[in-house]
């Protein structure tokens, strides 16, 4: 009896335990190598697939690196003006209350130009889900300072580091919206290690489930890297993120249902 098995024998469809969800399109992602956006996209679409929600989902893409998210996600989507995704999602959800409606936004979109729309959608308790990818920089436009750029962090528009005396402090918008009565579930995760990916997926599952139960607004922040903007390799950027971002933006659930 042979003690070995060939690669070909293992790589059979019946033995497959993990593959890219078919709810991601074949289009190559436009993100830089190692960027967390790709993983965040994948997790959301895995959950939509597992919960059989493709036909019920309407997504809203922001302005920023993920402006072209609709090229990669095989669901009906709308592209919103910069920062306005929560208002767009409000319009959709109010008129299509049976649909699963989510926004996918970066830090500039959600926490700078769209602060008003974010806070008021949260405060109204809109029954939508917001996915917030925070990498502390404007990646799409070439690495400028974001509302979540850390103190002393260098960017294209703070080349000597963010001076909080003149440029203000990074905004902890997730803690801020967690204080509002309209938010039901608020969590901060990351997708840079296998364990964090698993936790992030659980948070995404919860956020989507709560919308199905009409519980109000669920909000999942994903602290992520921007190796191009931070001028590091992907592995270096994840290490820098662990050492610098997580102390300011600690991971974990911020608001959970009582």
């Amino acid at each position: 009896m042979p003690d070995t098995i060939t690669r070909e024998e293992i790589c059979q469809p019946e033995n497959m335990i993990y593959c890219r969800t078919p709810l991601l399109t074949d289009a190559p992602l436009s993100y830089c190598p190692g960027c967390g956006h790709g993983t965040a996209h994948r997790l959301i679409m895995e959950v939509i697939e597992e919960m059989n929600l493709q036909a019920d989902t309407i997504g809203v893409a922001p302005v920023g690196c993920s402006v072209l998210a609709y090229d990669f996600l095989d669901i009906d989507m709308q592209q919103a003006a910069h920062g306005r995704a929560p208002a767009v999602a409000t319009g959709i959800k109010r008129l299509m209350p049976d649909k699963f409606v989510f926004t996918y936004q970066g830090d500039g979109d959600l926490a700078a130009i769209g602060t008003g729309e974010t806070i008021h959608a949260c405060n109204r308790g809109e029954n939508i889900t917001i996915f917030f990818v925070n990498n502390g920089i404007y990646g799409m436009t070439g690495g400028q300072m974001a509302p979540t750029t850390l103190p002393n962090m260098k960017t294209a528009t703070s080349p000597f580091g963010r001076d909080v005396q003149t440029m203000g402090y990074p905004l902890k918008i997730t803690e801020l919206i967690a204080m509002l009565p309209g938010t039901y579930f608020v969590s901060r995760q990351s997708v840079h290690t296998p364990a964090n990916v698993r936790k992030a997926k659980k948070a995404i599952e919860k956020a989507i489930s709560y919308q199905k139960l009409n519980k109000g607004l669920s909000f999942v922040e994903i602290v992520s890297n921007c190796n191009s903007g931070w001028k590091m390799t992907p592995l270096e950027s994840n290490k820098w993120m662990e050492e610098n971002m997580f102390s300011f933006f600690p991971l974990g659930d911020i608001k959970v249902p009582k």
Partner: peptide, 19 residues
């Protein structure tokens, strides 16, 4: 729905109109 601003109003219109 009374929105928080005219900006939010018009983008709510956008979301609904796209449906």
């Amino acid at each position: 729905l009374q929105a928080e601003s005219e900006i939010a109003s018009i983008h709510m219109v956008y979301g609904g109109a796209a449906c």
